[in-house]
């Protein structure tokens, strides 16, 4: 993990040294890593299968936009530093509100209900676009520093991610984390140990929502112009869930590594591959097949790999899960040995 942190810290320098252009994508990956940590609290620590996590990400992001953008229907134009904590609070409150009716649900039933929440928000905001600006979008969302560049953003987001990891670590080693593990292993026995299922689940669902709200608010500020699209929809929820499961459910390092794997794959590797095919493979093939235009006409449309982005993503996911079904870094039990 230390090596990874060192690499993360030096990445902008390395990128500059090779005149690379991956820093904006890396910033997005950092946002994903925050989401993976937050969802890991819910899915990994508590074993609550949540399928609507991206909705909280959207709430955080839109709160930031509503509070700060000049195009917001509220036209408040608050500063970033006022809007950030309030966005987190709004998401936390909505997280607690939506957690309330799910506290008695278990397993599959919880998954269906959270999926309902996730699917509800998107069309609602779209259909009321006049009021929500979900499709029209909002620009000029407040930023932490007046003239901020991608490198500064990168380090800010890296710091925010470390904060989320610190929180996850703190929960894991607290009595709350222990209670969550107990509920995950055996809810009946956990209750017989004096653990309130409702209270503990409420705590973790609220906390998970707050982390998503934090990431969402930062994301809105980072991209500057916000409208409702991936990753705020159901696909976004599934993407973050895939990161957690691929990395190793319940493991902090797993969520980092799983998030990195999918984030880098989706935002850097696959786009690079698409460009590569476009720039080199396509002309070469066109040359080679110049004698048979009929065959070329058949092949050419398939060479635009950007249309197969999700196929490549999905295939990689399947292969990785087959190779390591327990995740890349499985959770280890907490040790109490001195």
């Amino acid at each position: 993990m230390k090596g990874l942190l060192l690499f993360g810290l030096s990445l902008p320098l390395l990128n500059a040294a090779v005149h690379g252009s991956i820093l904006p994508a890396c910033c997005q990956v950092l946002i994903y890593l925050m989401l993976a940590q937050g969802l890991n609290l819910v899915v990994g620590y508590a074993g609550l299968l949540h399928l609507g996590y991206a909705a909280f990400f959207a709430v955080g992001a839109f709160s930031m936009a509503y509070l700060t953008s000049p195009q917001s229907p509220f036209n408040l134009q608050w500063s970033f530093f006022l809007a950030l904590p309030l966005s987190v609070l709004v998401t936390l409150f909505i997280g607690a509100l939506l957690a309330w009716p799910t506290l008695k649900l278990r397993g599959d039933y919880l998954a269906i209900v959270t999926m309902g929440f996730g699917l509800m928000l998107d069309p609602l905001m779209r259909n009321y676009d006049d009021a929500t600006k979900a499709i029209t979008g909002m620009a000029a969302i407040a930023v932490p520093l007046t003239s901020i560049n991608t490198t500064v953003w990168y380090y800010l987001l890296l710091g925010a991610l470390l904060l989320c990891i610190g929180l996850a670590y703190r929960v894991r080693h607290s009595s709350l984390g222990r209670a969550l593990r107990a509920i995950r292993e055996d809810a009946v026995a956990a209750e017989a140990c004096g653990i309130s299922l409702a209270r503990t689940k409420l705590q973790v669902l609220t906390l998970g929502a707050a982390v998503a709200g934090f990431a969402g608010a930062l994301y809105a500020s980072y991209i500057g112009t916000l409208n409702l699209a991936f990753p705020f929809d159901f696909n976004g929820s599934i993407m973050v869930l895939a990161m957690v499961i691929l990395g190793g459910v319940g493991s902090i390092r797993g969520a980092v590594v799983g998030g990195l794997a999918l984030g880098v794959l989706n935002l850097i590797c696959i786009p690079k591959l698409i460009d590569l095919v476009q720039a080199h493979v396509q002309p070469a093939l066109a040359q080679a097949l110049s004698g048979s235009p009929a065959l070329w006409a058949q092949i050419e449309p398939w060479l635009d790999l950007s249309k197969a982005q999700f196929l490549m993503f999905g295939l990689t996911l399947v292969v990785m899960m087959l190779l390591r079904p327990e995740g890349m870094i499985p959770e280890k039990p907490v040790s109490y040995a001195e």
């Binding site: 593990r181 292993e185 055996d186 009946v188 026995a189 017989a192 039990p333 907490v334 040790s335």
Partner: peptide
Amino acid sequence: IRLFGPMSVIE
């Protein structure tokens, strides 16, 4: 018996 199996005895 309903122990929290994978966790340590002290946990």
